[in-house]
Design a protein around this nucleic acid. Structure first.
Lengths: 230, 230
DNA sequence: CGGCTTGTTGAACCCACTCAAAGGTTGTGG
DNA sequence: CCACAACCTTTGAGTGGGTTCAACAAGCCG
């Protein structure tokens, strides 16, 4: 069976959601499917021209922004089945750099096609606007999180990753953190030492099990209690 | 002269930017113009159904999110000429509550019209996607800011407000901070005491002049030097 | 004018950072 | 397949920026 949008196992969560069968078929003819990149490679670079929206089929990625002093800021992680590229819509150039955290397989919906398609398929515009809105919602959550203490941040991070994996049909109580402690800390606005300390504190409390990058959720409710107690 | 989109002094920065004359005219027939709300009133409430996109014509507003404990988080300030409502696109319900910081006059582009219009006017979808993308860019900037020290945050805040006012044709070196110290601190992720201390430190250094809510920028370059020194 | 919200200033404290050093893991080349 | 190097992770001890708590001053509105 060919790898088409119609038969893709990401169908329910990727762009096609909300489109008719016909629309998905015409979408399928425009998408550049089955691209691969090795760990550490960039899906796109900050400042380069907007190419389109990308869907991660397998592997994962981080979205990093650089400030004028060259400091890296991890803005987001992208898990399998999730979209990226929304940081290129406003200025036609990407605001961030997207780096593969492990080997990735992805699909690309090029801009030119996107404009044509949005004209012929009004619901695609709706879907894209909706997805773009998700980004805003996510940024609100992150803002709220950035006012919390370090343990709340780490607890929320684990729960959040777990939820996102579950939503996409992956194991949600036992998974691999493909990013380093440094990257987690950068993302959460704390140091990697603090991340390490808290992961081991949670383990000592029997909430999780960590062995290097492998994580097992033992007591979701217990961990959840950390996510915004008074 | 009637208050139409075509003749609005916000034309260059509001939604119409990028649309043709004909498109602006048809937009004008759908927009609900010249609404007013008193200080403290809500333009919309978190959880209520998405009504559409709103453009502030005069006055200003804050966008606040509530967490499950009822804590308020100031997510953004909206100045005259700026748009709000993007927090409603993804779930069809607003994620945040928008409160007027002073009496506001605003225009509203209702959803139903928006869908009709997006079908007939592909470039409107483009414009909305672009505006939605701006929101993402802004959230990246905020994330970067949230890793900085308190003085960098306050300095950046002043510069940022000033820039936005300048962009829209208002005085950029002498203006009123329509929000309280508490709200600034909440927005920046620091306490109101720290905001107060830093404003007065900047004044002591001759960078600004503050008298209650009135602010004068004396040394933009000097202030800018705070915005991300090593 | 009086009461109330908002803003300012001081002093003590605490959480997360910094610095440092030891232990693990991963990948590469001999 | 082992050895080495580079990187990542863990753990400890001391420090500091911003918070907290508290008291007072200044606007603001009835």
């Amino acid at each position: 069976m060919p790898v088409t949008c119609e038969h893709c196992n990401l169908g329910r969560i990727c762009i096609p959601k909300g489109l008719t069968r016909e629309e998905i078929e015409s979408l399928g003819t425009l998408v550049r499917r089955n691209n691969t990149l090795p760990k550490g490679a960039a899906l796109y670079h900050a400042g380069s021209p907007f190419r389109g929206v990308i869907a991660i089929r397998s592997g994962s990625s981080k979205l990093v922004a650089l400030d004028k002093n060259g400091n890296e800021y991890v803005v987001d992680f992208v898990l399998p089945g999730e979209l990226l590229g929304f940081d290129g819509f406003s200025t036609e150039r990407y605001r961030c750099t997207a780096i593969a955290l492990e080997n990735v397989n992805y699909c690309e919906l090029p801009t030119q096609q996107l404009e044509v398609l949005a004209r012929d398929t009004p619901s695609l515009a709706q879907v894209l606007l909706q997805r773009s809105g998700y980004q805003f919602d996510a940024s609100v959550e992150k803002m709220v999180l950035s006012r919390k203490s370090a343990d709340e941040r780490v607890a929320s991070f684990i729960i959040h990753i777990s939820e996102r994996l579950r939503l996409r049909g992956y194991a949600s109580t036992e998974f691999r953190l493909s990013m380093s402690r440094e990257e987690i800390g950068n993302y959460l606005g704390i140091t990697h030492e603090t991340v390490s300390r808290l992961l081991h504190q949670f383990q000592a409390q029997g909430l999780i099990n960590v062995k290097s990058k492998q994580l097992t959720l033992l007591d979701r409710a217990g961990l959840y209690r950390y996510c915004s107690e008074e």
